[in-house]
Structure formats: C-alpha cells, structure tokens
Design a protein around this nucleic acid. Sequence first.
DNA 1: CGGCTGACGACCT
DNA 2: GAGGTCGCCAGCC
Length: 129
Amino acid sequence: MASRKASASRYDKDLHGPLRVVGEGFHAQVWERVSRVPRGSVTTYGDVAAALGLASVARQVGWALAALPPGQDTVPWQRVVNAAGQISERGNGARSTVQGKLLAAEGVELTDTGRVIDFAAKRHKFDVT
DNA sequence: CGGCTGACGACCT
DNA sequence: GAGGTCGCCAGCC
C-alpha cells in the first residue's frame, strides 16, 4: 500500500501445496455472508473472511466487493468497514461518501473522522455454522 | 519471472 | 488515538 517493503520473492505457493484459498465461488460466498448482515449493523472484511474460514484473506474480501456492479442493491456492501470501524476511501472518495450516507440512513452514524459510532456494539457476529 | 499495488489486519512507536 | 511497517493473497504490467 503506502510503501511496504517490496515482497522478497512474492510467495512460495508450491512450498505449501494447494494454498489457493480464493476459488471460483469466493465472490458468491462473500456476497452471501454480507447479505446476512442485518440493517443497522456493520461488519469487517476480516470478520467476513474469518466466517468463510479464511482469516488471512480480508484483502480478497474487499477485492470481491470491488467486483460488485456499481449501484447494485442486492448486497449491502456499505455495512462492511475495516477493522478500525472506518470506511476505506479506496482511492475514490465518491463511493465512501455514498457509503456513509447509506449507513446514516440505517441508523449507523459516523464521527468526524469517518469512524462508526459505537462500532463494537454494532459489529455483527456471523453464525459459526 | 520480477516488481508493485490494493474496499485489510495485527503490531509497534 | 494517530502514523508507519510487515505480512497475506491476487491481479497487472
């Protein structure tokens, strides 16, 4: 992101065998989980990933949501924020503004710094299934 | 194949 | 609480 040291030699996937965690139905699984988040509650990328049994693919969750068609209303992507309870800018301030507006309409207010008020209490807990 | 960049997270200062 | 670093996986050039 910002800077980070360049990856040593990327990742030795062959060293760990079939470590490919993100497969074909990954997007669908992410969208289904997000769709289960009740109105007025929020969740994090990490929580969604953990709910899928993939605790270290929070980044891919955001990647999956980014693949959603703009303006779609079937998946409440606005209820997904980062672990700090803040809305990510993802380079485009327009979308983050819309997200904050949608959340406000659901009763989820944000502070001046863009952080969800009482985040810990509004944070949704996924079923362990 | 090498190097960078992300809708992220945990840790450290 | 704020800001910087490292680690993860995937997509691009």
